[in-house]
Design a binder for these strands. Structure first.
Length: 433
RNA sequence: UCCUCGGUAGCUCAAUGGUAGAGUAGGUGGCUGUUAACCACUUGGUUGUAGGUUCGAGUCCUACCCGAGGAGCCA
């Protein structure tokens, strides 16, 4: 009797004979004995094969297999301290499903260059750390959906094709749209504002495109963004939501991705400190902090990456910076009643140099102000008529934020670069594979 | 768009202007407890491209191509 099994759940099969299906990860020959590491997507197990057990011909066939050959192995499961992973399979039968070619390019002990690895991303996904990162991404996505579902936010998908910019400041990808032109979305927010007036609390979660010529470890041209939006919300409500959100998602990853974070050699102490409340600084306080640290910073500018890092180093958890000079923020930001020069926006800076993971705020509901801001930002009025309608028909205070999924996943996984946090990254000079 | 660094074997890298090399991967053989196994032997090159200087260029010069990570901008 042979039971199909997966490597992750192999502990339940000790003492019985199972069949494992997977790919040859590593093989160490030892004369008439062979150690075979089999990878099945759920984990890696060490299998032991002997010539006496398998017979001369099958044993020779096993030893001739290349890394990544697809196999079925059958045999008894045994707990063994000598095996990495704690369990071992005594192979008594081998089925070669698809032998791999001899020139598998990805080395296990990888000091390979990033250019090479990204070019082989379709194969790089199989290696243990990349595998772990995508498992964490999977869990983070589930945690995000659960978080909003439990709080009665309604998922409302925003369109990918859009008629114009959501924000005037960044570049858009233009695509042919029959006899017309369209643009790939750079944010679903404006649509979420419409949806919030229909459902109260909503969010969207989908791909976002930015044709920015950015070449940094924090940028992709295609990335996934989560954008909740709440009717009847103030800036303070948005900040409350943002910190509850980060606390919940990080806690979930810590709870359910222990193995993956271990594989990634992630020191989780910074993640364990992601607990409410987060420090909240006004922009003015943040600028003062920079000046106290001796950094040259001109009041009124946006914070650069080094400034963000300097601020986050003063705290042991994510920092929220709010009430920004309106001039550096998007056209739709509401003004602070106490000081109209300030916009009711908030950025959340993650620790460890991970940078800005969340940007959001309270939206302007003043029709005349928005009309003026569209002109100031040189945005085409016609394309925003529908958006202005939202202010004509029952506008209430509302707000929300956008979170970059890859920045969050990269930070949780302790990866330097966001490109490892998405299966097939798109950057300015790379769209293959 | 700007700044900086880089491109030599499948991969990671070395080579004072003077015979292009090592490790690793691949191949062959050996080994019954390996943990990046080990030992022996071995295949492997249009030095990113095009010019130029020189008796001689991987090395120096010019242009171009490609990539990386930083700025700006952003999540």
């Amino acid at each position: 009797m042979t039971t199909p099994a997966t490597i992750r759940g192999i502990g339940a099969h000790v003492g019985s004979r199972v069949e494992l299906r997977g790919w040859l990860y590593k093989q160490r020959g030892k004369g008439k004995l062979a150690f075979v590491h089999l990878r099945d997507g759920t984990g890696v197990i060490q299998a032991v094969a002997t010539r006496d057990q398998l017979g001369e011909e099958t044993f020779a066939r096993l030893k001739g297999l290349q890394q990544e050959s697809a196999l079925k192995l059958r045999g008894n499961v045994r707990a063994d301290e000598r095996a990495p992973g704690g369990y071992e399979l005594d192979v008594d039968d081998l089925e070669v499903v698809a032998p791999a070619a001899a020139d598998y390019p990805i080395a296990h002990v990888s000091d390979q260059g990033i250019d090479f690895l990204l070019g082989k991303r379709h194969l790089w996904l199989r290696s243990s750390k990349q595998h772990a990162v995508l498992r964490v991404r999977n869990e983070v996505i589930k945690a995000i959906r659960d978080f909003f579902y439990e709080r009665e936010f309604v998922l409302v998908d925003a369109p990918i094709f859009t008629p114009a910019a959501c924000e005037g400041t960044t570049n858009l990808f233009e695509v042919a749209y029959f006899e017309d032109k369209a643009y790939l979305t750079q944010s679903g927010q404006l649509y979420m504002e419409a949806a919030a007036m229909a459902h109260g609390k909503v969010y969207c979660f989908g791909p976002t495109f930015r044709a920015e010529r950015s070449k940094t470890r924090r940028h992709l041209t295609e990335f996934w963004m989560v954008e909740p939006e709440m009717a009847w919300a103030t800036l303070e409500d948005v900040m409350d939501l943002a910190e509850a959100f980060l606390e919940a998602v990080v806690a979930r990853a810590l709870e359910r991705c222990k193995e993956e974070l271990k594989t990634l050699e992630r020191d989780t102490s910074a993640l364990e400190r992601v607990r409410r409340p987060f420090p909240r600084l006004t922009y003015d306080e943040a600028v003062k902090l920079l000046h106290d640290k001796g950094l040259p910073f001109e009041y009124g500018n946006d914070l650069g990456a080094p400034d963000e890092t300097a601020i986050s180093e003063s705290f042991d958890r994510p920092v929220m910076i709010h009430r920004w000079p309106a001039a550096v923020k998007a056209f739709y930001m509401a003004r602070d009643a106490a000081n109209p020069a300030l916009a009711l926006g908030v950025d959340v800076i993650a620790p460890e140099g991970a940078g800005e993971v969340i940007g959001g705020g309270q939206r302007s509901i003043d029709l005349a102000d928005l009309e003026r801001q569209l002109e100031v930002h040189k945005l085409p009025r016609e394309a925003f008529e529908w958006y202005l309608d939202l202010r004509r028909f029952g506008a209430v205070p509302h707000g929300g934020f956008g979170l970059g999924l890859e920045r969050l996943v990269a930070w949780i996984c302790g990866r330097e670069h966001v490109r490892e946090a998405i299966p097939f990254p798109r950057t300015i000079y790379r769209k293959e594979p």
